[in-house]
Structure formats: structure tokens, C-alpha cells
Nucleic acid binder design. Structure first.
Length: 640
RNA sequence: GCCCACGUAGCUCAGUCGGUAGAGCAUUUGCAUGGUAAGCAAAAGGUCACCAGUUCGAUUCUGGUCGUGGGCUCCA
């Protein structure tokens, strides 16, 4: 009676099954193991649930937790599990959205009182109960209008709002026991699939990310197919915490922030200052090599300057209150550009003088809302590795190529290869300059990125009002992306300051101005560097490259002399002559993540050598002093 | 700025159901001359973030301020 249909699998093989079989049953025919591991499926590339019934010949692909699709469904189902538990414990709760995210999920609720950590435990327990109940998850479909009525009757105003924004037609609902949610799916077939989970945190989150709308209660969680995987993930989170630059910054004595000095203001300790000095020296040298000139500008400027630049109009909420100097208002600078423009305007320029490339490690101060401050990564006072390029239109594409190459060279020098590039285009409404300039500049940016052969994403409408830009972001230890490099066109400043050059025709012309930062800010860059290397800096960046340890007091003098000799050769060396055991001092040096530890005792004194221990190795090896110095110099000269 | 949590010695953390506090590490001193991830001992170190309120009495309870952490929004 029932006819057979042909199912084609991704490997090209096919099997014949009874028409109207569920995918779950078909999976069983392929293999029991796969049937157990499968979470969702794709039928002719459309994602569906396992209880979807196939009626005709089709392609079928099954997804387990190993795939992105499987994980997504798993975490999304976990968020429904969370929501069901919340519904049971807090019947008055209203439901907003609950998507899967990287390594987990969240769900936003509106509740009468805010959640407490104890609530989290209760909710977790209830979730475990629902898992044990092994409730079937059922997909339902209904016309949008009917769904609106249905959710209205339950008082689910957020769901109704979501439905209003959907195109008219059929929408899907997922029901598990007494709980039902508006959802596109797909979902896991039963609640028992979610074997191991943990709720991680409670946070406030604005409805639809809009701070003018209600603040909802968000619960974050993670879920895994087995307890082992959950434990492994939690352990991973622990390890990520260990490379947090705030923790390492203290342990390595790089910097501190004090309540007494002010939030978001960095105090650089000697070791951190040394690191900065290394970075900044390299930066300056490379800029001179790459056709830049360096300039310096003051920390404050008169209000008329910021008025002309437009900052008082469009950036004032980020600027600190003015100070009165001889009856005039002066502002601490939030940006360096107006000063660089004033340098430009100090004389006239010919088309033959362009391009100009002026760079400055300029320290700026910006008001950041208290809730966003974060170690070195988000501060109120920071040093931008700023530069402004002024060029003729015909030079512009070449300048973009140059600056992008330079940027990638710098990032790679510091060991970064994993970054994301975004091309931000013209915003929809508010923007300056004419469309031709925008499209020409945007095309130049795009072509340059493509020539460099790097992947990028287009951030449509994400440009500043004054010009399109390329942003390069680097990931921190917690997987958060931080913007470092930025290359931005500025159509606004040249206009406002009437920046011109004299062309071959003897007429005044408006040049292109490009604002760029390669490392972004020194503060943020150091923060990202610390996490990138987990504090184990390569030789050329290590504030201390070598610690020399004496075994007995007899060797102290010799150790101090060697320290001076190494220092004279330009190596960053410290000696530890404390009256402590050698094990104690070695341990101390290891904890400070110093690349090399050198031990000097009787034997080394007699043979003119050092017992050398490399970071990460447990064994030591005795090397003649000169050979050791040469080794250190070779390693210190290497950038990667 | 908003939501939640937190703030005890330089660091990591105990503790006090309201009667002015404790450990380990670090520091100092003494002993130990010790050979590659913590030698032994002693001492010193705290306005329990700050300011109000309640109380006979507040580090503990309440409120506010500042700061920190996780988010949201915003940004290098």
C-alpha cells in the first residue's frame, strides 16, 4: 500500500524508505549510533526537526552536536528548557527572546522582581526535572493573525510585538508540555536530549537592545550533550580567566588602576612602561621607515578650535567639561585631528607636497560611561597611535594600499594573524560630503582589502557620518572582539577647516584626509597583547628577558657583574641576589614568565658559563657566557 | 547611564545570626651557604571602600556615594 521514496545522503549514497517516514526513523535505518546522535536535519537544504515526515524523494542531511547547526539547535532548545522552568516557577513572567549564542544560550524575561543567584539554582533544578520528564517537543503551525490572538490572550506582549514584525503568513510554534513559544525552530525532539547544562549569570538587557525600552532580566547558560563536555567547557572558561589581562597585569606588575586616581585611568608601572616603550619605539621607527613624519600636539585646546572642528556639536557627550584659562574655555582633547590640521594650515601646500603622512602617539581623554570601563581595553585616557594622511584624489587608492599593508605588517609583527576586517559604508541618513566622494572612497577601501587578499565583512551603514572606514578587530581571551586598527576617511574636517592645496592649475583644491590608527590605542593594544600571549611575551617584547640567580653568596658578585655585562649589550636583564634558596628564586622567575633564567654557582664561576633554563622547559643546560649572550641577542632580534 | 553581584592586610580569601577581626602568600628580622617551581622561625601589617541612618553598641542591618566584576547600550 505505502509507496517507497528515495532518500539521498550527503555522501551520494541513497536508501529507500517508506513514504511519510519521520527523519528519526530514517536515521535509525542508516545507523543506531547516528539516530541517537542526530539533533536536527536538513531536507533539500531546509532545516527541519527530526520528527519531520518525508513524503517524497529528497536529499537528507543529519546534524549532530559536532556541526554548527546541531549546536545551534541544542542551545536554542536549552533556552526553551530554561524558559519552561522559569514559567513554572514564575508564572507571571513574560517572555521576550531566547536565542543560541557562542557556546550557549540566553533568554530574556520580564519578571515582577529581579532574579537572584538563588533563583538560578532553583531554575536549574526545575530544568533538571523537565529533562527527567522527557517531554516531547512538538511543532505547530498557525496563521500569523491567529498566533497574535493566541499570545495576546496569554498576555505575552513581547511575542505579539515580534509577530507584528513578521510577514503575514504561517508562523510556527513549539510546544513542550505546558510551555509554548513562538519559534522558527528547528528543535531537538525531546527535553531529555539536554543532558548537561549550567546557568552562568543574570544580567540586565534592554528589550531589543534599545535603552529607551524596558530593561529585561537575561539569564545566560550553557549546555552540552554530556557532563564531560560541560565540565571541559567550564574548565576552559577557568583557563580563559587565567589569561585575563587584568589578572596578569597585576601579577606581572604592568599597571594599576586606583579608586583614588580615578576610574579608567591607567598607572603604568616600570615593567608596563618598559613594554610600552618597546612597542612605541618600534612604532616610531617603522613610521619613519614607511614615509611618515612624527608630530606632537598639546593636551588641551581652545573652545573655538573644537567649535570649528564640530566636536562641540557632535562629540560633546564624550568630552570633559572645559577649564577656564584667562577667561577662555579650554577642553582636554578627545582627538588629535584638529591639531594636525592646524599644523597643515600653518603654511600653504602645493600638489607636489602631497601626500603628507603625520603620525603622533597622542594621548586623548574621553568620557566613557562608568559601566563600560574594562581594564586596559576600555579606559578614559588613552594614547592613540594616530596619523592623518592628506593626499590628492589621484593618490588616494595608493595611499589606502600603503596604509593597509603597513597596518597588517604591524599587527603581524606583534604576532596577530587572527583578526576580522569590517568595511563600514555610508550611514543611511546623517552624513556629510557628496555621494560621489563616498562611493569613490568606499570603492578604494574595498578594492584595497581585496588586493590584500583578506576576508572582510561589509558593515552596511556602519560608517561614521564623516566618511567610510575599515575596522580591524582582534579577539580577546574571552572571545570578545576589540577594535584596534581603523582607517577612516574624513570628509568633514577638511571642509570645516577649509583645508586646501594648490593644484597644477593654480587653483585651490580640497585634498582627501584619512585618519588612521594601527594599534588603536596603546592601552588596549597592550591589554590584547597580554591576553594573546597569556603573559608569556616573545623575547623582543619581554620587559625582562633574563633573570640571573646566584646559588651561594660567593657567586653574588659574579652574578651582578654578568648582569651589568648583559645589560651593556642591550639585553633586559635583572639579577636576583636575595638570600633565598635557588628553588625559591627559580620559581619566582618562572611565575613572572621570564623567557630565560640563568643560574650561577661555583661550577659556572669556574667554567665561565651560565646554567640556562628556558621558559616552558624543566631542564637546564650549561652554556659559556659569550655563547649565551649571542643566543639571547639572536632571540631578541626575532619578531616572530 | 541602566540591571545584577561584589568591596575584610600589598595579593588570594576565611569570618562576625550586631559586642572594633583571622589564614596563606608577599614584607621585615633571625637562623640556614642552600644547585633549578615555595628551607625554618618570629615580628609587623586592617578606620572591615567612604558618608549618613537605626541601635547602648555597626565591619555586620538600612539608605546614599565611590569603585570593581558580568551583561545591555555606546566606543580605540
Amino acid at each position: 500500500m505505502s509507496s517507497e521514496i528515495k532518500i539521498t545522503l550527503p555522501d551520494g549514497s541513497s536508501l529507500s524508505v517508506e513514504a511519510d517516514s519521520s527523519i528519526y526513523d530514517i536515521a535509525g535505518k542508516i545507523g543506531k549510533k547516528l539516530q541517537k546522535a542526530a539533533l536536527v536535519a536538513a531536507v533539500n537544504d531546509r532545516l527541519v526537526d527530526l520528527f519531520f515526515h518525508i513524503k517524497e524523494n529528497t536529499n537528507l542531511k543529519l546534524f549532530t552536536f559536532a556541526s554548527a547547526e546541531g549546536k545551534d539547535a541544542f542551545w536554542h532548545s536549552a533556552s526553551h528548557l530554561l524558559a519552561q522552568a522559569v514559567k513554572r516557577l514564575f508564572p507571571g513572567a513574560k517572555f521576550a527572546i531566547g536565542p543560541s549564542i557562542e557556546n550557549g544560550f540566553y533568554y530574556d524575561f520580564e519578571v515582577e522582581r529581579n532574579f537572584t543567584p538563588e533563583d538560578l539554582e532553583k531554575i536549574e533544578a526545575e530544568m533538571a526535572k523537565i529533562v527527567a520528564e522527557d517531554i516531547e517537543v512538538v511543532r505547530e503551525e498557525m496563521p500569523r493573525q491567529k498566533a497574535i490572538e493566541y499570545f495576546s490572550s496569554m498576555g505575552e506582549s513581547y511575542k505579539v510585538e515580534l509577530l507584528m514584525d513578521l510577514p503575514d503568513g504561517t508562523v510556527s510554534l513549539y510546544r513542550q508540555g505546558e510551555f509554548v513559544d513562538l519559534c522558527r525552530g528547528p528543535h531537538l525532539p525531546r527535553t531529555s536530549y539536554i543532558k548537561a547544562f549550567k546557568l552562568l549569570s543574570i544580567a540586565g538587557a534592554y528589550w531589543r537592545g534599545d535603552e529607551k525600552r524596558p530593561m529585561l532580566q537575561r539569564i545566560y547558560g550553557t549546555a552540552w550533550p554530556t557532563k564531560e563536555e560541560l565540565d571541559a567547557h567550564l574548565k576552559h572558561l577557568d583557563e580563559v580567566e587565567k589569561r585575563d589581562h587584568r589578572k596578569l597585569g597585576r601579577e606581572l606588575d604592568l599597571y594599576s588602576i586606583h579608586e583614588e586616581t580615578g576610574a579608567g585611568l591607567i598607572l603604568w608601572h616600570p615593567k608596563g612602561a618598559r613594554l610600552r616603550h618597546i612597542i612605541e619605539t618600534f612604532w616610531r621607527e617603522e613610521h619613519y621607515k614607511n614615509g611618515y613624519d612624527l608630530v606632537y600636539s598639546p593636551h588641551i585646546g581652545k573652545s573655538t578650535l573644537w567649535d570649528t572642528s564640530g566636536h562641540l556639536g557632535f562629540y560633546s557627550e564624550n568630552m570633559y567639561s572645559p577649564m577656564d584659562i584667562d577667561g577662555q574655555d579650554y577642553y582636554v582633547k578627545p582627538m588629535n585631528c584638529p591639531f594636525h590640521i592646524m599644523i597643515y594650515k600653518s603654511r600653504g601646500w602645493s600638489y607636489r607636497d602631497l601626500p603628507l603622512r603625520w603620525a603622533e602617539l597622542g594621548t586623548v581623554y574621553r568620557y566613557e560611561r562608568s559601566g563600560v570601563l574594562h581594564g586596559l581595553l576600555r579606559v578614559r585616557g588613552f594614547t592613540q597611535d594616530d596619523a592623518h594622511l592628506v593626499c590628492r584624489p589621484d593618490q588616494m587608492p595608493d595611499e589606502i594600499d600603503r596604509v593597509l599593508d603597513f597596518c597588517l605588517y604591524m599587527l603581524r609583527s606583534f604576532g596577530f594573524s587572527d583578526f576580522k576586517v569590517y568595511l563600514a559604508t555610508r550611514p543611511g541618513e546623517k552624513f556629510v560630503g557628496d555621494e560621489a566622494m563616498w562611493s569613490e572612497a568606499t570603492r578604494a577601501l574595498r578594492e584595497s582589502v581585496e588586493r590584500a587578499g583578506i576576508d572582510y565583512e561589509v558593515d552596511e551603514g556602519g560608517g561614521a557620518f564623516y566618511g567610510p572606514k575599515i575596522d580591524i578587530k582582534i579577539k580577546d581571551a574571552l572571545g570578545r572582539e576589540w577594535q584596534c586598527s581603523t582607517i577612516q576617511f574624513d570628509f568633514n574636517m577638511p571642509e570645516r577647516f577649509d583645508v586646501t592645496y594648490v593644484g597644477s592649475d593654480g587653483q585651490k583644491h580640497r585634498p582627501y584626509m584619512i585618519h588612521r590608527a594601527l594599534l588603536g590605542s596603546i592601552e588596549r593594544f597592550v591589554g590584547v597583547l597580554v591576553e594573546h600571549y597569556a603573559g608569556r611575551f616573545p623575547m623582543w617584547l619581554s620587559p625582562v628577558q633574563l633573570v640571573l640567580i646566584n646559588v651561594v653568596s660567593d657567586a653574588a658578585e659574579r652574578t651582578a657583574r654578568l648582569r651589568d655585562e648583559f645589560a651593556a649589550r642591550g639585553l633586559r636583564v635583572e639579577s636576583d641576589l636575595r638570600e633565598e634558596t635557588i628553588g625559591y628564586k627559580v620559581r619566582d622567575a618562572i611565575e613572572k614568565k621570564v623567557p630565560f633564567v640563568g643560574v650561577i654557582g661555583k661550577k659556572e664561576m669556574e667554567s665561565g658559563s651560565v646554567s640556562v633554563r628556558r621558559r616552558g622547559e624543566n631542564a637546564s643546560r650549561t652554556i659559556p657566557v659569550d655563547e649565551f649572550a649571542a643566543l639571547l641577542e639572536t632571540e631578541a632580534a626575532r619578531k616572530s
